[in-house]
Write a protein that binds this DNA or RNA. Structure first.
Ligand code: ZN
Ligand code: ZN
Length: 716
DNA sequence: TACATCGGATTTTAAAAACG
DNA sequence: GTTTTTAAAATCCGATGTAT
């Protein structure tokens, strides 16, 4: 919407093949009744549809260069002449006359005299004194009857013309080459780069002059350029149609001795832009026996050839870049004809057509190892959640419910849509059905198992406020066993019987504790309510060898903080309002008493990239470092109930059968489509909530810790 | 008939993706 | 860094309403 203008009409055109196709169908009906503003292929049905009543100056001074130059482009031999029949002017009662000269009573005409097209304009039919040139309302029916006229057998309808062009080896629609003239015989609409504010508001044609023509005409002041709203950025789009690469897969040489019919990747009928005659075909030859003449004709015709690309044959045709996968029966017929002829000219060999949509891309190093970063995964997931979906090679637009888009068409459109769902060699079926494993972090999600909920709470050197973050710490000299072992003050005995009510011990220097309740009711601990360690005036640990245990927060609150820098001990665990055993440490960890798996989605979520504790890293044990508290180095035993996942993947029925509607329904059901990310929660978020740390600042007052650092991703 | 308004077709433009 | 693909944003056609 132009800034400052009222929104109305189309906001954006869907480029989904499905939707595009649907809309064409719908409009075709409408156009019959209302007169033609259809796309190419739908013939303009009013005189104006073909012949603009006035020729805007821009069209003369800055002709539009066609964006896509067709291989079909062929110059018309000098001497040949083309004349289009002009529709009668609306006042001429439907009489049809051949226009070859300027006629003041006629609208614009196009005539071809040599290999160029001359565009002649004449005075608008009803351009009375003043007023913008606009149509007299014409009778749609008679307008339809007029339609586009082509001279004798030179051209038939645009549609046939396309087929013709192929059959004739590339003699394409010459008009297509003429700048600004569309295949339907209609002049390409020319727009100014930016309209003035007046014209913009009025939705009327502006000019490049200032004041613009319209403002001059209506004596409007302050004719100034409007401003364009900056396009929003950061919107992920998902994979693009893979473009033809020089190194594109040109088919490994087939070892299959059986002769194969060459397969043409089916060019498609343009849905809304472009033109059939822009169909292009590229063929690579090498060991294909083909006569010089044939090659010659091919290379000068519709097909560009080369002989150096590959063994085997690649027939890779594609239409205008903007067209989308669609099929039309008559067009498909033409394609079959086309491919058949090619088949007769060149014995076919192996060919390979890259699949579409493209496969995910990965960074693959020289060892063939796939490097997938968290960012890669994030992007992939983002695209999967918000980007377009591909169903059997059809790109579905999520912004408008694809399933309803299908059903809303009704009748003919639906039938066509169903027809299109036929499998094609280019567009493999999309497997459907319930995916046999969960990716949501719950039971059955194998991915989430790689990460421990234990996290490093803060980076070395940070100062932790003990007064509000009490907890346990432990000197890690010995393998902790039951929190006894002489390491635990005050008595060196066990605490809570050594098992800490579900707390766990592991590795040197790491203390993992369970719920705070573990000390409740433990008389021996409760008695130790005084701090026996030494803190300096600032609350820092002054006596590294001291140990202390406190069983309630009040006894510790007088000590403000523990400086974790420049110490050599192994670990510190603390948790708000829990008991603390203070220990100088360079590392600190915390763990939930309840271990839950984060979902894959959480694992790959984007971090804010700052103020994160570094990811835990497993040391080699020789440098005095501390082993990662993650479970990466632990055996990945499948949970009970997960053992069969692998088997289920292989035997998944969905690989075989397919039902587009089903997968659509399922994706809607599971909320994996179109759901606001911010509202998606999973077990990992709950887990963090349980810790009381989610969304909160770190205990040292720095920015919140991202899930990524918690989960072991370090993107720095 | 002039012109305001509207729906939406068509074009332009630039961000994202692909490529080299 | 360059090219191509996409889709947001803009232009403005042509139908329609309405005041004159
Ligand atoms: Zn203007
Ligand atoms: Zn102006």
């Amino acid at each position: 919407m132009p800034m400052g203008a009222v929104q109305r009409g189309t906001v954006s055109m869907p480029t989904s093949p499905l939707l595009g196709h649907a809309r064409v169908n719908v409009r075709q009906e409408k156009d019959v009744g209302q007169g033609g503003r259809g796309r190419w292929g739908v013939l303009p049905q009013t005189a104006q549809g073909f012949f603009p009543l006035s020729m805007p100056e821009e069209s003369q001074e800055q002709p539009q260069t066609p964006q896509h130059v067709s291989l079909f482009d062929v110059s018309l031999p000098p001497g040949s002449s083309h004349t289009w029949l002009s529709p009668a002017s609306p006042t001429a009662s439907g009489a049809v006359r051949t226009q070859t000269t300027t006629n003041t009573d006629s609208p614009t005409i196009f005539s071809r005299t040599s290999n160029s097209v001359q565009i002649q304009t004449s005075s608008p039919v009803s351009a009375g004194a003043g007023g913008e040139a606009r149509s007299t309302r014409s009778n749609p029916t008679s307008a339809l009857a007029l339609g586009p006229a082509y001279e004798s057998d030179d051209l038939t309808s645009p549609h046939d013309q396309m087929i013709f062009g192929q059959d004739r080896g590339g003699e394409a629609d010459v008009r297509d080459e003429v700048e600004g003239i569309s295949p339907g015989g209609r002049k390409k609409r020319v727009q100014v780069r930016i309209a003035c504010t007046h014209c913009q508001r009025a939705c009327k044609k502006c000019s490049n002059t200032r004041p613009c023509e319209r403002c001059v005409k209506y004596r409007l002041d302050d004719c100034v350029d409007s401003t364009r709203k900056p396009r929003k950025s950061g919107v992920k789009r998902g994979p693009y149609k893979r473009r033809a690469s020089k190194y594109a897969v040109t088919g490994e040489y087939s070892t299959d001795p059986r002769p194969k019919q060459p397969q043409i990747s089916v060019p498609t009928l343009p849905s809304h832009q472009g033109h059939p005659s822009r169909l292009q075909a590229k063929i690579s030859f090498s060991d294909i026996a083909i006569g010089n003449n044939a090659q010659q004709s091919l290379s000068t015709g519709i097909i560009s050839t080369s002989t150096d690309v590959s063994r085997g044959l690649l027939i890779h045709s594609h239409d205008d870049a903007r067209t989308a996968p669609q099929q039309d029966s008559s067009f498909a017929d033409a394609q079959r004809t086309f491919s058949h002829r090619l088949a007769n000219q060149a014995s076919a060999h192996a060919q390979h057509i890259p699949t579409y949509p493209p496969d995910p891309r990965f960074n693959i190093n020289t060892d063939g190892i796939v490097n997938t970063t968290a960012n890669d995964l994030t992007q992939a997931l983002s695209a999967a959640l918000s980007g377009p979906r591909w169903i059997d090679g059809q790109r579905l637009d999520l912004s408008s419910s694809s399933s309803s888009a299908l059903t809303a068409l009704g009748g003919e459109a639906t039938r066509r849509a169903e027809k299109r769902s036929r499998p094609s060699p280019l567009y493999p079926k999309t497997p459907t059905g319930h995916f046999p494993i969960s990716l949501r972090g719950d039971r059955g999600d194998p991915f989430s198992r790689a990460v421990s909920p234990i996290r490093q709470l803060s980076a070395p050197g940070t100062t932790v406020d003990v007064s509000t973050n009490l907890g346990w710490s432990e000197l890690g000299k010995n393998q902790v066993s039951g929190l006894g072992g002489g390491n635990i003050p005050p008595s060196g005995g066990s605490i809570g019987g050594g098992t800490l009510n579900g707390g766990k011990m592991s590795g040197h220097g790491v203390i993992i504790l369970g719920a705070p309740e573990m000390f409740n009711g433990d008389s021996s601990l409760a008695a130790q309510s005084t701090w026996t360690g030494t803190l300096d005036q600032a609350g820092h640990v002054a006596s590294p060898e001291s140990t202390a245990i406190v069983t309630d927060s009040s006894s510790v609150q007088q000590h403000h903080s523990v400086n974790l820098s420049n110490t050599t001990s192994k670990a510190l665990f603390f948790r708000p309002h829990h008991n603390v055993q203070n220990q100088h440490s360079t590392q600190s960890f915390e763990i939930s008493s309840k271990i839950r798996r984060p979902s894959l989605r959480t694992l790959i979520s984007q971090s804010n990239g700052s103020s994160r504790a570094p990811s835990p890293v497993k040391s080699n044990g020789n440098n005095g470092g501390i082993d990662s508290p993650t479970l990466f180095d632990q055996p990945m035993n499948l949970d009970e109930g997960l053992e069969m996942v692998g088997t289920r993947l292989h035997s998944w029925k969905g690989w075989e059968d397919s039902a587009v509607a089903q997968i659509q329904e399922e994706s809607l059901e599971t909320g994996m489509v179109g759901q606001d990310d911010a509202n998606m929660r999973d077990s990992a978020h709950d887990f963090m909530d349980g810790l009381g740390q989610v969304g909160m600042d770190q205990v040292d007052g720095s920015a919140p810790i991202g899930f990524e650092s918690l989960m072991g991703f370090s993107t720095s």
